[in-house]
């Protein structure tokens, strides 16, 4: 079951191991696992080339400076590397667009690219308003019994289910 070449591991095992990543996060960095702040670090750093005044915004400055900000950027970049390694070992590299988009929305490539872009925009806008995403509020916030995270996760599922109901059922 834990063969590195297997295409799927038990979700309980994989989820439990993800939970163990809180140990180095708390012991070595004094912070919890999270991903969505890194989008601000990267976007604000890049945009500051075109608009140096951006660095004057308190929110941007707080995300551009410091070890924790760039720890999270590296964490998020590492996710792509880890997934590439896992998919290569199991012969599960993906190509093109997942078949679910045709079955749930009858979308071709161009339509799907547009929907993915819009989805990404709304997702990060929401995550920054709520100050966390599936990792920061979900995995880490619930594991700290934070009330705000419970509200955010409940709202996330409500918004996700309401939106998903607009798609065609996948049977």
């Amino acid at each position: 079951m834990v063969d590195l070449a297997n295409k799927a591991w038990s979700p309980y095992l994989a989820g439990g191991l993800i939970g163990l990543l809180q140990i180095p996060a708390f012991l070595l960095l004094g912070t919890a696992l999270g991903t969505s702040s890194s989008y601000v670090s990267v976007a604000a750093s890049l945009a500051a080339f075109a608009d140096p005044g951006l660095r004057g915004l308190r929110y941007a400055a707080a995300h551009i400076e410091g070890a924790k900000a760039w720890w999270q950027v590296a964490l998020v970049a590492g996710i792509a590397v880890g997934a590439l390694i896992s998919a290569t070992l199991s012969g599960m590299r993906r190509h093109g667009i997942a078949p679910v988009w045709h079955r749930a929305a009858r979308l071709g490539a161009a339509g799907r690219f547009g929907m993915a872009f819009a989805g990404g925009f709304v997702m990060l806008l929401g995550a920054r308003i709520a100050d966390g995403c599936t990792s920061g509020h979900g995995l880490s916030g619930l594991a700290q019994l934070a009330i705000g995270s419970m509200i955010a996760v409940a709202a996330m599922f409500a918004g996700g289910i309401a939106t998903a109901m607009l798609f065609r059922p996948v049977r």
Partner: peptide
């Protein structure tokens, strides 16, 4: 902010078929 941001986040995850971490995977 938790409630309204969470609603938007969930809608975005459904449209993207990903969350801010899994998109990198």
């Amino acid at each position: 902010a938790d409630a309204l941001g969470g609603l938007l986040l969930g809608a975005g995850i459904a449209l993207a078929g990903a969350c801010p971490g899994t998109v990198m995977a």
